Amino acid sequence: MMYDQTRAQQPASQPRGGAERRAAGPEPLLAAAERDAIGGRLGHALNTFADTPLEALEEAESAFDEATAQLANALAERRRVLRAGWQDQDPEAQSDELRHALRQYREITQRLLHL
């Protein structure tokens, strides 16, 4: 890999290549607090397995159930918002909005397929 002197001389606040900086990635389906709470419960189950294996498995199952329920709710809400954005649009006049909705469907579906 060659050292790029032009890039090295640009101020850190200046976007590289003239393009705007993008977000680190797609927004999570669950809020950080929800993910942390479920992860904490799962971690507790893992840590207590040696002493109380059945209780640990029940706690892990409960954490799994909560995670799937919250994901299902988040996906249903995402679908509702997406559909509301394009459902009543005139296809000829609003092709940019429809294209954006299609990209969002593609992104979320691809994320689901790679779980």
Rank of each mutant, 00 (worst) to 15 (best):
M1R: 08
M1D: 09
M1C: 13
M2P: 14
M2E: 14
Y3W: 15
Y3S: 13
Y3H: 15
Q5F: 13
Q5L: 14
T6G: 07
R7I: 13
R7W: 12
A8E: 11
Q10E: 14
P11M: 06
A12L: 13
A12H: 07
Q14S: 05
Q14W: 04
G17N: 14
G18P: 13
A19G: 03
A19C: 03
A24M: 06
E27D: 14
P28M: 03
P28W: 02
P28R: 11
P28K: 06
L29I: 08
L30N: 09
A31D: 14
A33C: 01
A33H: 10
E34K: 04
R35Y: 01
D36H: 09
D36K: 11
A37L: 09
A37H: 03
A37Y: 06
A37N: 05
I38G: 01
G39Y: 02
G40S: 10
G40I: 01
G40Q: 10
G40L: 03
R41I: 06
L42E: 04
L42C: 00
A45C: 05
A45H: 02
L46M: 06
L46H: 03
N47M: 09
F49R: 05
F49M: 07
F49S: 01
F49W: 08
A50E: 06
A50W: 01
A50C: 00
D51G: 04
L54H: 07
E55N: 11
A56T: 04
A56D: 06
L57N: 02
L57S: 05
S62A: 15
A63L: 03
A63I: 03
A63C: 03
F64L: 09
D65C: 04
E66V: 04
E66P: 00
A67L: 12
A67I: 00
T68E: 12
T68V: 13
A69C: 00
A69D: 11
A69E: 12
A69L: 05
Q70M: 09
Q70N: 10
Q70Y: 01
L71Q: 08
L71A: 04
N73Q: 13
N73D: 12
N73E: 15
A74N: 05
L75S: 13
E77I: 07
E77S: 09
R78L: 06
R78N: 07
R78K: 14
R79Q: 15
R80D: 12
V81Y: 02
L82Y: 08
R83I: 10
A84D: 15
W86V: 15
W86L: 11
Q87F: 12
Q87E: 15
D88R: 11
Q89E: 12
D90E: 11
D90G: 07
P91N: 03
P91D: 08
E92N: 08
E92A: 06
A93Y: 01
A93H: 04
Q94H: 13
S95F: 04
S95I: 06
S95G: 00
A101E: 06
R103H: 07
Q104W: 02
Y105T: 11
Y105M: 14
E107G: 01
E107V: 15
E107T: 15
E107R: 15
Q110Y: 08
H114L: 10
L115Q: 13
L115D: 09
